[in-house]
Every structure is written in C-alpha cells, then in structure tokens.
Amino acid sequence: MNSTPAHPLADIRIALKRLPHGEGLPMPAYASTGAAGMDVVAAESLTLAPGARHAVATGFAMAIPAGYEVQVRPRSGLALKNGITCLNSPGTIDSDYRGEVKVILANLGQDNFTITRGDRIAQLVPAPVQRASFDLVDDLNDTARGSGGFGSTGVTSA
C-alpha cells in the first residue's frame, strides 16, 4: 500500500529550455514529496561580497502556461546560515517571459559567500494568477480598521 498521499492538485506542465551554459545541470525539482518549492541551481560560479547583489544565471528559460506565474523564493538554510536571500521576494516570472531565469541574490551576511555552479540557490513555486480591474469611486466603505496603517492592528488604546 502506498503511504504517500496523492497531491490534491494536478501538475501544470511547464516547458523548460536548457541554455548552452546550463548543460549538465539538474532541472528544477522537488526535494521531497511535501516540498512546495522546486530547488533551482546556479549555472555560474561567483563570490558575493557582504552587501553585494547579483542576478545569478540558472541556464534555462521557461514557457509558463497562461493564468500562472512562477515565484522565486529564498532557501531558508542559505538565509539563516549565511545571510543569503533573494531580493524582490517573492520574485515573479510572468507567463509571457521567455528569457533566461535569473535569481537576484543578496549577501546580507558579514562574510564573502561563494556560489559554485550547481549549488542550490533558490526555490521556484508555480502559482495561479488572479487578474483584477479597478472601479474608480468617490468614497470607500468604512471598516473597523479604517485608514490605520503600518503597525496599527492589535494595538490597544491607553
């Protein structure tokens, strides 16, 4: 008997084109059956100095189906252990983009961080996209929160 439950949603199919500098690298893949994100690896080697950022090549391009995006998210281990994170996170790869996927990494740590070709650098999470349109109005309906902004919820008056 199979102890792994079936995933409740059907997989979407994403066409992936391997670029010449990505030859020999693994395709994005889930590391476990319960993983939400697919690990993606670097197609180049470099050193990120403290405070530096770089759009790291992955060596592939994708054709994401209409109605979906792919989000680029940091790897928690790199963030905790080394201060390496993705800027613009989660980054969005739109369904009509056909260029190379690059991951904007930043070194928030205090030491140089070396990335070697083939190192896992981020996660990719496919997600459905809900489109919206706006209706211009003169007034908005009232709520208990009103226009209270940053840090205004959960605060009691003295």
Results as ranks from 00 to 15, higher is better:
Ile12Thr: 09
Arg13Val: 15
Arg13Asn: 14
Ala15Asp: 14
Lys17Asn: 12
Lys17Gly: 09
Arg18Tyr: 13
Arg18Asn: 09
Pro20Ala: 09
His21Gly: 08
Gly22Cys: 11
Glu23Ser: 14
Glu23Met: 12
Gly24Cys: 13
Met27Ser: 15
Pro28Gln: 08
Pro28Trp: 08
Ala31Cys: 05
Ala31Asn: 12
Ala36Lys: 04
Ala42Arg: 05
Ala42Lys: 07
Ala42Phe: 07
Thr47Ser: 11
Thr47Trp: 12
Ala49Trp: 09
Arg53Ser: 14
Arg53Tyr: 08
Arg53Leu: 08
Ala55Ile: 11
Val56Pro: 12
Met62Thr: 05
Ala63Tyr: 01
Pro65His: 08
Pro65Ile: 01
Glu69Tyr: 00
Val70Ser: 01
Gln71Asp: 03
Arg73Val: 02
Arg73Gln: 02
Arg75Gly: 05
Arg75Val: 03
Gly77Met: 10
Leu78Thr: 07
Ala79Asp: 07
Leu80Arg: 14
Lys81Gln: 13
Gly83Gln: 10
Thr85Arg: 13
Ser89Gly: 00
Pro90Asp: 00
Gly91Phe: 01
Thr92Gly: 01
Thr92Asn: 00
Asp94Asn: 00
Asp94Trp: 00
Asp94Ile: 00
Asp94Tyr: 00
Ser95Phe: 01
Tyr97Cys: 00
Arg98Trp: 02
Gly99Met: 02
Gly99Lys: 01
Val101Ala: 01
Lys102Pro: 07
Val103Ser: 00
Val103Asp: 03
Ile104Leu: 12
Leu108His: 13
Leu108Gly: 11
Leu108Lys: 14
Asn112Thr: 14
Phe113Ser: 03
Phe113Val: 08
Phe113Trp: 09
Phe113Cys: 10
Ile115Thr: 11
Ile115Leu: 13
Ile115Val: 15
Arg117Ala: 15
Arg117Gln: 12
Gly118Thr: 04
Gly118Met: 03
Gly118Phe: 06
Gly118Asn: 04
Asp119Tyr: 06
Asp119Arg: 02
Asp119Phe: 02
Arg120Gly: 04
Ala122Pro: 02
Gln123Ile: 02
Gln123Trp: 03
Leu124Tyr: 07
Val125Pro: 04
Val125Ser: 06
